[in-house]
């Protein structure tokens, strides 16, 4: 980490410079933006907490069996769903209580993670790619290309997000993860495209981009080395926030009966809503997991954005 105090040195005056900034014994290794960002992230507690949370969530997603041996679908009507959770029995099927059909809430929370994470990740990834590419092309090339792409974006932006996805999902009988991701992504990419386009247009006019062009830099080089890193910050912020939004949207769709057909937090929140007065835990625990997941991703986005801005160091 370079020390700011050392920069106020007189460059021309070697004597003074040597005095204030003693030369290191051996030359430092060449560094890059990504290397520095990583070095910075490793010391950010926001990053550490959020990535620990996300790591656990990913572990649950891929190895739910590690956390519970109970089947989330198999219901046992003999279990009384009005019986309070036994919070002492950590990890046991009755830890977080049972739902109406006698299924373990804990098992459903564990198995529901996969749906939420998959939809959140998948949708965010697809909208960021799609919106990012559209925004970059529209912003960089301008003119007719921009006019066409921007109007297209406006058309999609005009469609109410949830209504659009509901109409699309309603026409599917079997709503798999891919179908839900596709529907959410199809209507969701416009925000990223707009943010990206604006950022590209601003960055495109900056002198350092002109300087790179003056050196003879190719279009991909200008795009990926100069424009992209300087437009990532707003895109990452929007993407991480929307990741939470998509997880919530999936829950909303499930609540309305138009989400995933399998196990998901959204479905459980929807079901539990009917019993909120007698058995709050059916809704409470999936909701807590949803909140923690959304929060973890927003924190991660914040940490990454700060790390990619050398001025924040």
């Amino acid at each position: 980490m370079p020390d700011f105090t050392k920069t106020a040195v007189v460059a021309q005056d070697a004597a003074v410079a040597a005095e204030i900034a003693p030369q290191p014994a051996k030359p430092e290794k060449a560094r890059s933006l990504w290397g520095d960002a990583w070095a910075d992230l490793r010391r950010s507690w926001i990053f550490l907490i959020s990535s620990a949370l996300i790591f656990i969530l990913l572990l649950i997603t891929f190895f739910p069996g590690m956390f519970t041996g109970t089947d989330p679908i198999l219901g046992d009507l003999a279990k009384n769903y009005l019986q309070k959770p036994r919070l002492g029995n950590i990890g046991s099927p009755d830890w977080l209580g049972y739902d109406q059909q006698g299924r373990s809430v804990y098992a459903r929370v564990i198995y529901g993670t996969r749906a939420s994470i998959a939809v959140g990740f998948g949708t965010t990834l697809s909208v960021t790619l799609l919106g990012g590419v559209v925004g970059m092309i529209a912003g960089y090339f301008g003119g007719v290309v921009d006019a066409v792409l921007s109007r297209l974006t406006d058309v999609f932006f005009g469609i109410p997000f949830l209504l659009g996805t509901m109409v699309v999902l309603n026409s599917f009988q079997d709503r798999t993860t891919w179908v839900v991701i596709g529907a959410l992504g199809f209507f969701g990419w416009t925000q990223i495209a707009r943010v990206m386009r604006g950022a590209v247009i601003t960055t495109k006019q900056s002198d350092y981009v002109q300087a790179a062009k003056a050196l003879g830099a190719s279009t991909p080089r200008v795009m990926f080395r100069h424009i992209l890193p300087n437009t990532l910050a707003p895109v990452i912020v929007v993407a991480t926030i929307s990741l939470g939004v998509y997880i919530a949207a999936e829950a909303t769709l499930s609540f309305l009966g138009l989400g995933l057909t399998g196990v998901s937090w959204g479905n459980d929140i929807s079901d539990g809503g009917n019993q909120i007065r007698v058995a709050q835990w059916i809704m409470l625990y999936p909701s807590i997991m949803l909140s923690i997941t959304v929060l973890a991703f927003i924190m991660l986005g914040e940490a990454v954005r700060n790390a990619l801005d050398p001025k924040m160091r």
């Binding site: 060449a30 933006l33 080089r221 080395r225 100069h226 300087n230 801005d309 050398p310």
Partner: peptide, 24 residues
């Protein structure tokens, strides 16, 4: 360029900035 505050890419190190001509 005129403005030394905008003519250098803020996300590149000085080594990358001066070395870029050699990359190109």
């Amino acid at each position: 360029f005129q403005d030394p505050y905008t003519s250098l890419n803020p996300r590149m190190t000085v080594g990358d900035i001066i070395g870029e001509p050699f990359d190109i």
